[in-house]
Design a protein around this nucleic acid. Structure first.
Length: 887
RNA sequence: GCCUGGGUGGCGAAAUGGCAGACGCAAGGGACUUAAAAUCCCUUUCCCGAAAGGGAGUGUGGGUUCGACUCCCACCCCAGGCACCA
């Protein structure tokens, strides 16, 4: 395909933009100029480099950034790297290469790739989470949390000193005071059950554990085990994380996912007493109205009361069960969900509403981590209790009357109370309200809210993460480093392997523990020898606040200057944040949490970090399989016929659309596409494929289509050996001018609405109009180039220069749209008879209804359909449609 | 099981109460060329028909409306998320 010289042009303008610092945002912006902060989710610099999914979001934000600059905004459009993490750590373990080296290498490669696309990033603001100048402030924010507590009265975080004062006033001092304070910090240590993999020597996240209860990497056994870990008190923010979603202009589906993740539910805590025992079992229930139907109770295997209440003759069975349950990972417990197991403790509890004695069981379908770790079981109206009761032959008592024709067994919706004494006849809602109030009055229960959300396990036993700025001192306890000792740098190391062990009970030995001259340090508080914290932070840490560092990346005195923060973040935070939906919950929830802590402590001005969020869809691609199910690479597929066939054997192949992956041999490499067609074509293709939010398949066959369009633009403006340019002085044509205004308006509106695919088709239509007309005036060509520039910036700049403009177009104003060019004198109106299209009439825009209807009835293609019928109803939607209802 | 999206030509898609298939790909035809590539022009939802024209048509079945791809009800299929959360 003969093509415009994209390779040369793209290099030329990328160099010009970089050397001219064309996209550098002002360091001290003028508050009078409106701002726009458009942000991409920064990538993890993996060894595989960019895939075609990355530039999809980056192109979209680049279009918006370039457009907003032309509209007169100060645009902040930065890029950086989320460079701590497990892959570099594992690579280091396997190849003995320092993760810093591989990380630097990978960043260099991915940055080279990103720069090929000509994105208008302000590279002077680049950050990497592994830079000591960056993680210094990650550590500083951690210390902010360590030195803060959540004041339930103020519903916000406050400095820990306010708690110390308060507790002192209450008479605490010494060790007791310290323990009480430590237990309330936003960053605290606690013994929690974790997925412990002794062979890897680290704790694993749930998603790193397979269904078989083994490690995703290496297939080593994983055990459930209680270990002392750093925790962040995100649960204190559960309510605000849900409530403040109303401030976020986000896709509703993402908000729903976040709400579900936090999982707020309202109900009551109810206390069950036991005969002949002081023990009391507190349960959480969302259905206090079903108390009369509670026929047994269940404790989680880890529940502290299990041991105390189990009777002698059940001791052995309960112990065996608890021990076996403890060995299962959370995932195994879920896998066994269908088949309920459990053991009777021999003990009974008293149902507070009817004084009945009901048996207490232990079963692993009750989780220690949710509610109180104990439930009242109402088998008639809870699916799980129903299954359990059926299996173990426990009584099932109806207490809710479902609507006519619905079986009450297993009915879990609302209904009318029955078999509930004085409460019979109440609706579920009324009953809940009354019983909760009465339990509260009798001191047997209270209104309660529970969340699925758990506190965030924040430590990892690996090397390649931010070190905790913490020392452990025998005399002073856990002490944060003073600011002047930050950053606490990662010490160098030759062997990154966490100490592996076959013994699941052996204590963790993080790799940092081997750096003998690093681990001991003078306690910042008392000066005696103390031990550094040996764990490192998880990968999420650095990405929780990077959008703030971009604002003021070189500031050595603060994480960000407050005045600069107010300018770029006000009033609603980041104006546009684009990334994949895979971060819908964790990254976005964690970042919101950190932001709220910083907000409470007065360090940032907004309640929410990301005002508007947009999720790009996943780009997948075709995968071809032969009869045996073996994947065939693209260069072995012949798709010239009706059905794809194998180039060598001619065998017909099965096509499917899948995620790109090496094993499916369907990965498209951006480098190859750019080499063949150029970056502008790549950008345009990804934006033209379909709506940004939709998941769609990459189809290499379609790429030449947009490339052809760019060639047409080139020839239209510059011509080539065989074709003269269509630009001609004095070619101002009214039709072209009208088409141009219409196009500019549509492109502008579509960019604002993130509908890039239809913006591109509008530009294609305009070029088709010009080719039909045969010429275009210079001023029209110039305005067309301005509209094209956000999408295909290299080509636009080159043609802009070729048409005699000395200054770059990057900061030219967006072309003006004038209403008089959008209006037409006459309009074509379709005419329907009984809702069926029969003809079209052309009428003046302002024509009266009667005149239009008369013209419609008279239209030759319409009249025959009315012959012999009475027109019963006439509808005219001005400028849109006529419908004649006849019978 | 629950919660989100989505299902429109041979393919990617457009239209979100008012002309279904814009724009692009692929395919077919034509022009240019010794030829090919590139380029330009035309055709292209399906069925009946030589044509004019007619009929059907947006996953399936109902409904609301003068009018439904669009709104409502039920169902089927695909993708993503959650999943013993009491």
């Amino acid at each position: 395909m003969a093509a415009y010289p994209f390779g040369e042009i793209e290099k030329k303008w990328q160099k010009a933009w970089e050397e001219g610092q064309v996209f550098k945002a002002p360091v001290r912006p003028d508050p009078a100029t409106p701002k726009f902060y458009v942000l991409d989710m920064f990538p993890y610099p993996s060894g595989a480099g960019l895939h075609v999914g990355h530039p999809e979001g980056y192109t979209a934000t680049d279009i918006v950034a370039r457009y907003k600059r032309m509209k007169g905004f100060n645009v902040l459009h930065p890029m950086g790297y989320d460079s701590f993490g497990l892959p570099a750590q594992q690579y280091a373990v396997e190849h003995g290469i320092h993760p810093r080296i591989t990380t630097e290498r990978n960043i260099a490669n991915i940055e080279r790739q990103i720069k090929m696309f000509g994105f208008s990033y302000d590279w002077s603001r680049r950050v990497a989470t592994t830079d000591p100048d960056y993680y210094r402030w990650t550590q500083w924010i951690f210390l902010q949390m360590f030195n803060a507590w959540f004041d339930p009265d103020a519903r916000k975080a406050r400095p820990i000193t306010t708690l110390v004062e308060k507790l002192k006033r209450e008479g605490l001092s010494g060790r007791a005071l310290r323990d009480a304070v430590d237990a309330k910090r936003l960053a605290y240590m606690a013994e929690v059950p974790v997925n412990w993999c002794p062979a890897l020597g680290t704790v694993l996240a749930n998603e790193e554990v397979t269904n078989e209860g083994r490690s995703d990497r290496g297939n080593h056994p994983v055990y459930r085990r209680a270990l002392k870990q750093w925790m962040l008190r995100i649960t204190a923010y559960a309510e605000r994380l849900v409530d403040d979603l109303k401030l976020c202009d986000w896709p509703e589906s993402i908000k729903i996912m976040q709400r579900n993740w936090v999982g707020r539910s309202e109900g009551a805590e109810v206390e069950f007493r036991m005969p002949n025992s002081e023990c009391r079992i507190v349960v959480f229930t969302t259905r206090p109205d079903t108390l009369f139907g509670a026929t047994y109770m269940v404790l989680a295997p880890e529940h502290p009361l299990v041991e105390k209440i189990t009777t002698a003759d059940q001791q052995a069975a309960v112990r065996a069960y608890v021990e076996q349950a403890g060995r299962k990972t959370e995932l195994e417990r879920m896998a066994d969900a269908k088949d309920k197991t459990g053991v009777f403790t021999g003990a009974h509890a008293i149902n507070p509403v009817n004084q009945q004695q009901i048996p207490i069981w232990v079963a692993d379908y009750v989780m220690m981590g949710y509610g109180t770790g104990a439930i009242m079981a109402v088998p008639a109206h809870d699916t799980r209790d129903f299954e359990f009761a059926t299996k173990f032959k426990l009584p099932i008592v109806q207490v809710v009357q479902p609507p006519e024709g619905v079986d009450w067994r297993g009915y879990v919706e609302d209904g009318i109370a029955v078999n509930s004494g004085q409460y019979d006849g109440l609706t579920t809602a009324e009953f809940k309200k009354r019983i909760t109030a009465e339990l509260e009055a009798a001191r047997l229960g209270k209104y309660a809210v529970n969340y699925k959300l758990r506190d965030w396990i924040f430590s990892r036993q690996w090397y390649w993460g931010e070190p905790f700025p913490i020392v452990h001192c025998d005399a002073c306890g856990t002490v944060g480093l003073p600011d002047d000792q930050l950053p606490l740098r990662l010490p160098d190391l030759d062997d990154f392997t966490p100490e592996a062990s076959d013994d699941p009970e052996a204590p963790p030995k993080p790799p940092l523990g081997r750096v003998k001259d690093w681990i001991t340090v003078a306690c910042p508080s008392c000066g005696k020898l103390a031990q550094r914290e040996l764990n490192a932070m998880p990968q999420w840490a650095g990405s929780c606040w990077y959008y703030l560092r971009y604002l003021d990346p070189k500031n050595a005195a603060r994480f960000c200057d407050p005045e600069i923060e107010r300018y770029w973040m006000g009033p609603n935070g980041v104006d546009l944040y684009v990334g994949g939906a895979e971060h819908a919950v964790l990254h976005l929830l964690y970042a919101r949490f950190w932001h709220k802590v910083l907000h409470d402590l007065g360090h940032v001005s907004t309640a929410e970090p990301f005002g508007k969020l947009f999720n790009q869809g996943m780009i997948r691609s075709f995968a071809y399989r032969d009869k045996r199910g073996i994947c065939i690479p693209y260069d072995k597929v012949d798709s010239s016929g009706d059905k794809p066939t194998h180039v060598d054997t001619g065998e017909e192949l099965q096509v499917s659309i899948e995620k790109m992956s090496k094993s499916l041999k369907n990965v498209v490499n951006p480098d190859d596409v750019i080499a063949e067609y150029g970056a502008d074509t790549f950008r345009l293709y990804e934006m033209f494929m379909g709506p940004l939010e939709a998941s769609k398949p990459w189809n290499t066959r379609d790429v030449p289509g947009v490339h052809r369009f760019l060639n047409r633009v080139w020839r239209m403006v510059a011509g080539d050996e065989e074709h003269a340019s269509l630009v001609a002085e004095g070619a101002e044509d009214a039709e072209t001018e009208r088409a141009l205004h219409k196009m500019v308006k549509k492109v502008g509106d579509d960019i604002e609405a993130m509908k890039f695919n239809t913006a591109i088709s509008a530009m294609m239509e305009f070029v088709n109009v010009v080719y039909k007309a045969g010429s275009i005036a210079p001023s029209q060509a110039a305005r067309f180039l301005l509209a094209l520039a956000p999408f295909a910036p290299h080509l636009a700049e080159e043609l802009w220069q070729k048409t005699g403009h000395a200054k770059m177009l990057a900061h030219e104003p967006w072309p003006e749209v004038r209403a008089e060019f959008l209006e037409e004198d006459t309009v074509e109106v379709p005419v329907q008879v009984n809702g069926k299209l029969r003809g079209r009439i052309r009428v003046p825009v302002a024509a009266a209804k009667e005149a239009v209807l008369a013209a419609a009835r008279a239209e030759p293609s319409v009249a025959p359909h009315l012959a012999g019928k009475t027109v019963r109803k006439e509808i005219y939607v001005p400028g849109k449609m006529v419908n004649l209802v006849a019978g």
